[in-house]
Amino acid sequence: MKDQQHNSTKDSRRNFLKQSALLGAGVVAGAGVLASCNNEAAGSGEKIKLLTATGELVEVDPSQIKHVRKEKLTELQERGREGLAGHHWTWVIDLSKCKNARKCMDACVGAHELKPHQSHINVLQMQDSKSTAPYYMPTPCFHCDNPPCTKVCPVNATFKRSDGIVLIDNLRCIGCRFCIAACPYSARRFQWFEPDYTEEQKNRVYDVELNVPQKKGTITKCLMSADRLRIGKLPYCVSACPNGVYWFGDKLEDTVTNGTTHETVKFSELIRDNAGYTYFEDLGTKPQVYYLPPKNRTAPYEPVDKFQEKYQEDRG
């Protein structure tokens, strides 16, 4: 809201303020971290005197200087921070159907321009204990309703939208990796190197809902393909599964649609009739990805190399 006020100010004045902001930055920083951490503390009523380009002496509150310095969000960033109204996306993963085809991983890597090992969805080979049966388990971001990652983010770069998606704004991320430490589900990846882009690819407008182009030194993570949801399409991975593993839908609407067969059922009934569950409910994270137990696996489980060649490429 405060930004809008400033949008109406004249350009010359804004430019001047921008320059003086550099001076002001020293004052703000010097005045301590008070200003840094909350606006309430900053608006202490003290004014900074500035000489405008036209020779007028004006008094400006330090907090105003900060607002001018605030990066202007691109339209995609603004839009990406708003959830799609009236939705709460959910995901049901049927472990009994996963055949480890990894088409989901390929689709994810393709859509988000990642290296194979960075796939936002990871198909794991699980075995809970020695005496229990092994199974394949795709793990995307769980888009928790009490997300530990957005709790710890110092700059609101990763955030939860009103439709439940946890996104990451990589024009803001400072690369502290606290969210990686906080996530119990290992859902987050970091761009340790400059992604392989041509100059042209690199300079594309950043789409927060697709997290493309990827940025060096920032986080990349599963976004439930927010860009696809916006246009009424199922996520990339969900649509790519040949085995009917994924059901994706809306908790508020109480429907989920199978990405393979497009069969649509009531979410609550699917969960109820198949003993759906979530992972690590005890952590209090309220994950929004549900699993159906791997029962009635008629096909044998065939273990594959957990460190396949295609995932070994580290830097571009």
């Binding site: 009424g232 399409k233 199922l234 839908g249 809306d250 429907t255 497009h262 649509t264 059922v265």
Partner: peptide
């Protein structure tokens, strides 16, 4: 059926 949010989703 009823339409869901998704173009392929008909409950």
């Amino acid at each position: 059926a009823v339409k869901t949010h998704f173009e392929v989703g008909f409950l």
